[in-house]
C-alpha cells in the first residue's frame, strides 16, 4: 500500500527524517512540513541521505512552512517538489494511508 509519510522535525533536532527514509517503502511519498522543511536544504549534513532517497521515494515540502522560515525554492535539493495545503490534502488522498514521523 502506498503511504504518505509526514515529517515535521528538523533532521538536526531528532532523527525523524532519517528514520522515515530508512523505513519508507519504494514509491512512497514523503512530505516535509513545520520544522521538517529544514531537511530539504541543499548542502546540509543530511542532504546526501535525502538525495539518495529521491531515487526511491518522492519528496515534497510544504510551501507555507518554507516561506514562514525565509527559505526560498533555490535553496532546495533538486527534485523536491513544493506543495500547498491543497497539495498536502491531495497527497493524503493519492496514498492509502498517512504515517506521521513525529
Amino acid at each position: 500500500m502506498s503511504t504518505l509519510h509526514t515529517v515535521n522535525k528538523s533532521p538536526f533536532d531528532r532523527p525523524s527524517l532519517q528514520t522515515c527514509l530508512r523505513l519508507a517503502g519504494k514509491d512512497h511519498a514523503v512530505l516535509l512540513f513545520e520544522d521538517g522543511v529544514y531537511g530539504a536544504l541543499q548542502g546540509s549534513t543530511v542532504a546526501d541521505t535525502v538525495k539518495k532517497a529521491l531515487d526511491t521515494v518522492s519528496i515534497y515540502v510544504l510551501g507555507a512552512d518554507l516561506k514562514a522560515r525565509g527559505l526560498s525554492e533555490d535553496k532546495l535539493i533538486d527534485g523536491i517538489k513544493i506543495v500547498d495545503y491543497k497539495g498536502f490534502v491531495e497527497l493524503t488522498v493519492e496514498n492509502d494511508k498517512v504515517n506521521a514521523w513525529l
Binding site: M1, T3, R22, G25, K97, N99, A100, L102
Partner: peptide, 16 residues
C-alpha cells in the same frame, strides 16, 4: 529495518 518497512506497508491505520 527492511522487515519493519514491510510490516508498516501492510497496515491500514498508523497511530504515531
Amino acid at each position: 529495518a527492511a522487515e519493519m518497512a514491510e510490516i508498516l506497508e501492510q497496515q491500514d491505520v498508523v497511530l504515531s
